[in-house]
Design a protein around this nucleic acid. Sequence first.
RNA 1: GCGGAUGUGGUGAAAUUGGUAGACACGCCAGACUUAGGAUCUGGUGCCGAGAGGUGUGCGGGUUCGAGUCCCUCCAUCCGCACCA
Length: 925
Amino acid sequence: MEYEFRSIEAKWRKEWQQRGTYKVTEDSNKPKYYVLDMFPYPSGAGLHVGHPLGYIASDIYARYKRLSGFNVLHPMGYDSFGLPAEQYAIQTGQHPAITTEQNIARYREQLDLMGFSYDWSREVRTSDPNYYKWTQWIFKQLFNAYYDVQLNKAQPISKLIEAFEAMGSAKINAHSEVTHHFTAAEWKAMSSSKQEEILQDYRLAYLAESWVNWCPALGTVLANDEIVNGVSERGGHPVEQKRMMQWSMRIKAYADRLLDGLDRIDWTDALKEQQRNWIGKSKGASVHFEVKGNAAKIEVFTTRPDTIFGVSFMVLAPEHPLVTVLTSATCKDAVEAYQKESALKTERDRQSDVKNISGVFIGAYALHPFTGQEIPIWIGDYVLASYGTGAVMAVPCGDQRDYDFARHFQLPIPAIFENVDLSEVAYTEKEAKLTQSDFLNGLDVKSAMEKAIEAIEAKGIGKGKTNFRLRDAVFSRQRYWGEPFPVYYEQGIPKLVNDEHLPITLPEVDAYLPTADGEPPLARAPKSAWNCALGDRMEFNTMPGWAGSSWYFLRYMDPQNQLEFASKVKLDYWKQVDLYIGGSEHATGHLLYARFWTKALYDLGFISFDEPFAKLINQGMILGKSAIAYIGPDAKMVSYDMLPAETTGFREVRILIDLINDDESIQLEALRAWQPQYADQQFVTNAAGKVLVKREVDKMSKRWYNVVTPDDLCEKYGADTLRMYEMFLGPLEQSKPWDTKGITGVHNFLKKYWRLFHLNGTFEVHDTEPSATALKTLHKTIKKLADDLERFSFNTGVSSFMICVNELTEQKCTNRHILEQLTILMAPYAPHICEEIWSKLQPTATSIFDQQYPQFNEAYLQESTFDYPVSFNGKMRFKVNLPLTLTPQEVQAHVLALPEAQKWLEGNAPKKVIVVPGKIVNMVL
RNA sequence: GCGGAUGUGGUGAAAUUGGUAGACACGCCAGACUUAGGAUCUGGUGCCGAGAGGUGUGCGGGUUCGAGUCCCUCCAUCCGCACCA
């Protein structure tokens, strides 16, 4: 009887769906386990073999947990708002909802083929009004909250208003970028628009004019993590800085907690480090410098207050607001010219221009707070307006950039470190003691730092301060295909839409482009197109892509709930995601924002945990092997091994990899038929009459013609083979190029497994007493498997099955017990074939996934006749405690006489015995 | 520049607390059966050597009875951040 994978897999796909095998409900009798995949954006290209890698791993783990007696939540959904559908809409006029719907249908079809155990009744889509109703609702909660620094948590804004009413701004300890001073009476006298303006400086979701990354080509603002090398992540368009009124999220208030929380979660060091870098905490002090002949003060941030006596000049960012105020008449022209020049430079130019030192003296002097010395003030574009205060106190002897600047403009470099040579470079280490530094003389860095801050605070010219690289997250997009804000304006004041009007659904528009006067697309909608139009106008911006993905893991717990984003009971049952699998490209985007929202919702009392993802695994990327052919100046396509040494005039073209044979040669006729430009292609073949291509590893993408789809492989080898092969490829977390060649090995293995049950052509197992050798094989496989799963080592897991089946085949094992156990073990990896076998082993059973792993039960392992430590590759290790004086031969004799050694050897002689003095004996059978 | 990771056969990779390096699979070689197929089965396969044997986990050192594994120096590749004061 052949292994008919196509019919078997089709049969069980249907059965599982009809029976609702994978539906889960809360069950207080069972421990819960939540396994989650990062939900995909449903793009028009469909899935390639790289996408399911993480899904397969999580599916195996979810099934394993389920078989181990856990109540497993394993849902899937779609991050269905996004740019590509909108771009397509702009080009074709087709509503993005239709495109999205079609793409989702295609995704679902592909996902179903792979046999995943998702509970599809819990599917969520971020673009579904029933879902984004609650995204809007959460926005409202964040709008109505501020961050209390004292309590170190978010609080309802009403408490802040109460405090203002009672005692003004005096004792307020709320996180804000600005400081307000008013009394209770003054507060009460303010107009409501003035009050709102102040409250905006405290709300977690707030409206503010801010420098934003503006992408003219996309007509929208982008977050920092949506920009790669100065161009937009999607589309690669240039990005410039622009000041705009935008919604933002006060994530900076959570900077410290986002750092601390990392110590409590099980993520890789690499990823935690990325988030730490992104948050970029640095401790130091802010110091105010007085300006000679001017009332203005310049505030600087420094991480080295101990070097304050080494200051010999100051540098402001060209955009610094004080520059125009302080510039002297004689320097005005030069300063303005420089300002213009640096404003023209894009962020990218500035970055690539690191080595060119530039700057201008503005003709003003600051006064040193301790020595009263005059310090020339310069502007220079190495100082960034957006970090710290946009101004630095330059200490050329201790900072390389300041040093270079001083050298270039021949400014003094005062030496304040004992015995340090400053002739070539600045001294940036922290070992030397201070000198020429008044009250800091002779101190080491650490104590000088403390003393300097003390002195600065005592003098009232500054204080110890911590700075973060992390910026508040811009939350507005000038786009159509996103969540509308639950916000309207009345006389310019933003107001929240009441809950009963939610969701504010996306209005229909006549085009998905900005209006003529630059308003976002939603401004095109007449009032009548809104399901709820209030005030003077609605908010025309939409939310960014990360809004919906910052909380979706909560909605899976209770996706149909019309009254709450999820019920308290269900939230308390499922709690955190126990295992989250997805790509590392979300390290500083989604994973940070989701943590932020989770903490905010926790503070406001909606959930009982403040970290969303307890354990996270980043699956590696599956890359494609592009096929590159060479076309010479004479337009002939030249075989790669026939290329001349000199290839000028040759161009590289990428060829659809389906047209390449296993020996790297092109199927010439197929190429001619593929694209019109190759219809009459001439070739230069090699000695074998073939045209070879070069292989290069790229991201898997349509544009490189290197995509391999799971559909084709499922058709050819079956989903079970594909699942196991993807796991077999290598460690889950490692990136690797896709190579289909090895898949036959896994396919053969499944055929071998099938044959175990069909030795004589029909299904046949025997209820005999299992042989000792078969039990040995089974038990070592169980131990190995349990261990592999604990370590998420799925590749070695697959190998273990191969070894097990090889051994059982050799033993001609037809024992029911042994084969049943093996089948349960393998079911998470190859669900279809194992379910089919199971239905024959246990004709009355419903599903193999309703079983429990007796295997991973301690008691079962105790009962086993092989309760000594045995490693998987047949190696047996004995720990013995013998005198060191014994010879190796004597030790060997002693060990061979041990009862467990006798049992292990079963009368056979060991192939090899390795004796290590006094400690361990290894024996190989 | 800073931070993180990775270097093992022709290839993907194993090696769990330091204990036979290369399991398992692909590929390749030889053979069997064949309606000569991209089927199936058997055996072999790190490198050098006819052989015994030698040698071998990016380079060089160290600790240890014993190092792919631990420590130090260097090299290469990949990823993230980058004028962050």
